[in-house]
Design a protein around this nucleic acid. Sequence first.
DNA 1: CTTTCTGCAAATGTTTTGCATTCAA
DNA 2: TTGAATGCAAAACATTTGCAGAAAG
Lengths: 153, 153
Amino acid sequence: MDIPPLKLAHFKQALKNENLRLTVQRRAILADVLGSDKHREIDEIYLSLKKAGIPVSRATIYRTLDILEQVDFVHKMDIGDGRFRYENNLTGDRGKGHRAHHDHMICDHCGKIIEFVDQEIERRQEKISAEHGFTLLRHSHQLYGLCSDCRYE
Amino acid sequence: MDIPPLKLAHFKQALKNENLRLTVQRRAILADVLGSDKHREIDEIYLSLKKAGIPVSRATIYRTLDILEQVDFVHKMDIGDGRFRYENNLTGDRGKGHRAHHDHMICDHCGKIIEFVDQEIERRQEKISAEHGFTLLRHSHQLYGLCSDCRYE
DNA sequence: CTTTCTGCAAATGTTTTGCATTCAA
DNA sequence: TTGAATGCAAAACATTTGCAGAAAG
């Protein structure tokens, strides 16, 4: 669970810009979220770091994820079950690119989260907003139902 | 703020079917939500009933809105700010029809909620779901930004 | 009268915060 | 050394729940 050198450097710079410090906890939390292609919950991160022997508290995880969201390293998402999820928002190992925007399909039965994008939907959202004189800044779009594995259970 | 006779009758029947009783509180809460074209929060309902001199507690409002949601009289919505909103889900004054499905645009600045529907988006959601073998049961779709009144502030 | 409802206050579950202590630079 | 970060426990918030007394049918 290592942070690619370029991303780590980028993170150090971002911290320095805000007069923030690189701590064991911040490094571990970043590694956790970047190293997973999942949508992580606070408690998953907490338990995972504890198991790895890293001293950390939930408070620090919340505080660190706020910072990571500010600098766009992670994306904070709300699927409506009362807990936030955090997902890696950076591309591969090189450079500081951001992952492309996408929305989510969530299985009511097993909780699986599937990502999707549809350019036509993106366009229609812009069009609808324009028709109402609404300045669209962001959106939240989730599809709920049963994934293919749970469909016939 | 009266409940149209047909709707009241429908509500009484729905309650009877479940062995539930028609109380002053339930009648007042129903009247409140049906009588507003707004997206009501628990506290708005609570304060409004209190002001009208109706004895009620927040607990009862939560419990009653659960019932009203079960019987499809209201729609419970989550715009992601940590509080649920409830909106009237019935048509005019006659019959027991339901309002057409719609999604929402929310102004970050003044909180205004604008409803919208787009058949093409609805179709694409079905299409995307089918492509993933996903059984689509419902969705949540919000556009966030600035409404026309707040655009240049 | 019997059963369901209500209000209260306590419990819940997630996230936030105050503060003394520890640590990065 | 000194300002920032951490961990803890308490606070905040919206919502839920147990229970004794109130009320509907």
